[in-house]
Nucleic acid binder design. Sequence first.
DNA 1: CGACGTAACCTGTCTGGACAAGTGGATTTA
DNA 2: TAAATCCACTTGTCCAGACAGGTTACGTCG
Lengths: 258, 258
Amino acid sequence: MAARYQQIAQELREAIRQGEYAIGTLLPSEGELAAHYAVSRGTVRQAVAVLEQDGSVAARQGARRVVLGEVPTHSFAEMQSFSMWATSRGHRPGAKVLSVEVGVARQEEADRLRVSVGDDVLRLQRIRTLDDEPVMVERSFFPGLVAEHILAMDLTMGSITEQLTALGFVHAHGDHLIDAVSATTLEARLLGVRRGSPLLRQRWLASSPTGQPLAWSEDSYRHDAVIINVRNSMSANTLARLSGRDSTNGSPARTQGG
Amino acid sequence: MAARYQQIAQELREAIRQGEYAIGTLLPSEGELAAHYAVSRGTVRQAVAVLEQDGSVAARQGARRVVLGEVPTHSFAEMQSFSMWATSRGHRPGAKVLSVEVGVARQEEADRLRVSVGDDVLRLQRIRTLDDEPVMVERSFFPGLVAEHILAMDLTMGSITEQLTALGFVHAHGDHLIDAVSATTLEARLLGVRRGSPLLRQRWLASSPTGQPLAWSEDSYRHDAVIINVRNSMSANTLARLSGRDSTNGSPARTQGG
DNA sequence: CGACGTAACCTGTCTGGACAAGTGGATTTA
DNA sequence: TAAATCCACTTGTCCAGACAGGTTACGTCG
């Protein structure tokens, strides 16, 4: 069973979604909510902190919280997994494998996956489809730790992320680099767009709860296929703008070396 | 003076940055930190919660926190303001005004800025430069609330965001839509790239602490100028992938209407 | 040597209380 | 009328304690 504060957060979310607390209006005070749910003020604060982090309500010292609006509930898992996202949106995800190979880690791969140069690395290239239409070219890299498990999977369907989770390799953290690139001749052909057409590229590193890198992927989307949404605030900002010139190789923000 | 937990969070950040707590190693327990800083365990938890939210440390119940790495300290203000970002990165920001006009809000503008159709809206188009080199085309829209203040500013330098903040219009929340688009003939000429060249487009809505929209902007960057970085985790996810087809007009995620 | 179970340790959750600090409305004052 | 003051209310911060639940290391048993 979820914690009490999570239940309360969920109930408040529902209330906002159903217009019980209209946008722009004030939430009840912590004291009132505490009395209503029969919990202490601390528990109420934990609950509303969740909504604040989501960007669903705004808080100012001294004043009651303001309802900002309903926010798309997009779980972490849905963001990390193309398949889960597509399914939850009512689309039918698919994949076509272009190549799979196990090789020794080159410097760049070793840096990103935090393994040693020469260690085993699994490289996978796929086309991802939405309702049988190609929308993304995926180049993924996995450390030896999970390589054998992935080789045993059916890579044409289902989510690698989901299957890894079932095996105990939980994706807990993500670090994303987002930019725009031109479609190469190959990418253009695979996606059915013109060469040089803009692609939204999302390069991301997924890590386990202990920070162990589990996957590095370079996903290039047809520009008309996806839009990425990020919310931030003064009290919760995980969004940064990196200079393309300073780091043309686009090394992840997180420090990797020892 | 900042709160005690913020001081402690800052000290821990520094310690991680200086390698005192190496990446992959364990942070001291809450009890040890509480004793070291002579505060209660609750205060320590507030401090480390800041680092967890930043993605700098990972937490699991029962186990000590793991140091994930140093994270780029990019304040919310730096993300919202091109000028502040450029300056903090050691570049010289600039702007060239293409057009300024006050008009009546059209449906789309009214929706985004949450004003009524027909209300005053300020429209501003600028080229933004980095060390005198054009990197971004900016189309901004402001509600009447702040229009007169902006008209009184020197728009060729300095940050509108910063000047609005000085006037009491604090940017507290941001909602960003990120995608890739082709440079139009005009954009290509302004940015010195070929027509059809990929641009990284960031459309964002800035709101006050009470949720009042203060600005809507469509920023199109040369694809080699910037990379956007986002971190998320199971416990803190503000990142979502929207389908380009379902919402071709790219309406913001946050519910806007009443 | 490996599997299992236990115990110490650690984080997650919740309580109740206290005071600081900011907000907003009502009242008073110039 | 307009500005300053006051006051009730609300959120922010911090404390001390308690228990639940998960992890880790160690020692025992097969």
